[in-house]
Design a protein around this nucleic acid. Structure first.
Lengths: 211, 211
DNA sequence: CTATATTTACTAATATAATTAGAAAAAACT
DNA sequence: AGTTTTTTCTAATTATATTAGTAAATATAG
């Protein structure tokens, strides 16, 4: 048996700094050359290291992706929560969900693709990472239950959320693959957000508002 | 200079047969192990060949993907056209476009991903292949011009088509990543097709029909 | 049906990638 | 300053796409 002491604070801090630095470099590569273009060699090159040294911080390339997957969902959650603070009612909340989905994708294209598309061949998120992502998405369903009570519709809460997710995802995917340089609200698909919002509001009017 | 005669019909036919056989094997691999899991070695193994022999038929792996990209759009076009034959009016046409998009994805998951998602790292379709795909998609816009005249809406023809495309894509993407085993019309997202159709019809009623 | 030309498939080799093992260097601690 | 721990390195393994050049197979001409 080896003696296994826990690492000193100083060592821990150094590790933490190095680890973050590697993740940032990985994200930069993913943004510049595509999510799947990340290579241990290229990453090491950018860090002024040799590839095997990276294995001191991550046990594999998949673990780097997995860590960024978790970061993506954490940041997505924070992004939506932040925007929600400005909400003035149900109507706003719907808009924020769709715009927030797209703006997150535009601001973090690397994490967006990793979390919401399947850009990396062999990569499957770990059990724990998937649990985290489901937990975050589940919150939307929680909210939808209340949501629904104030709307005039036959749809269930889950149907409403799923429809909104599908629309937000569809608009975002098309926007990203056609006009990724344009901000939310602009371009062929970006400008459709108000359109789909008005369509949704017409189909599910808020109780007690004028038709 | 080498003498360059054109190949005899017999040679041409043999080449054609072998080429098709390679493409079918490639599609089988893509379906079984993922679009990006295609490797020249694996493909050769399935063909009982060595990898370099494949280069007699395709100049690179990218050319195999590119050929299948064109095949995908050609089959997609045929798929929609076939379904359209059964159309009984505008309302049906809308349904067929969305259901057809999803059923094509379910019946040809390999080609769907290759054509409508970005599952292969370095792969970018060639100029000609992109031209083909745009040509096919443009037909939708052509049709939408007439489409629009019969609808009671302020939206432009392009806005209508883009909205429908985004919704079809969103529902399909979510369906494929959640319940790819269920047929069109079933599952959390598959069953939302009637829902979005009724929402769209409510927002863009057909002129002269009862509200 | 056989000799020749052509086409196809092969082996060998190059280059790049992820990953592991084990030694050397650097840093931290006493 | 000497010892231990941590980090980084070089070297090696396996798998990949692709190229060059040769052998095998096939098609055609007489």
């Amino acid at each position: 048996m080896k003696k296994s002491k826990l690492p000193s604070p100083r060592v821990q801090r150094n590790r933490e700094v190095a680890t973050q630095s590697i993740l940032n470099a990985a994200r930069a590569i993913m943004r510049e050359e595509g999510v799947a273009a990340l290579s241990m060699q290229g990453l090491a090159r950018r860090m002024d290291m040799r590839a095997p040294s990276l294995y001191n911080y991550f046990s594999s390339k998949a673990e780097i992706y997995d860590t960024l997957f978790r970061l993506g969902f954490t940041l997505f959650d924070a992004h939506i929560r932040e925007l929600m603070k400005t909400s003035a009612g149900l109507r706003d909340e719907l808009r924020i969900n769709i715009e927030g989905y797209m703006s997150f994708a535009l601001e973090n294209p690397d994490l967006y693709q990793l979390c919401f598309e399947r850009p990396v061949p062999g990569f499957v998120p770990s059990k724990e990472s998937l649990a985290l992502s489901f937990g975050i998405l589940d919150q939307s369903y929680q909210r939808a239950a209340q949501f629904k009570k104030q709307l005039n519709t036959k749809l269930t809460g889950q149907q409403i959320v799923d429809t909104v997710i599908a629309i937000a995802h569809g608009l975002t995917a098309m926007h990203l693959s056609n006009e990724p340089h344009l901000p939310v609200g602009q371009g062929r698909f970006g400008s459709l957000i108000p359109v789909v919002l008005s369509i949704l509001e017409q189909a599910m009017p808020i109780k007690g508002e004028s038709k």
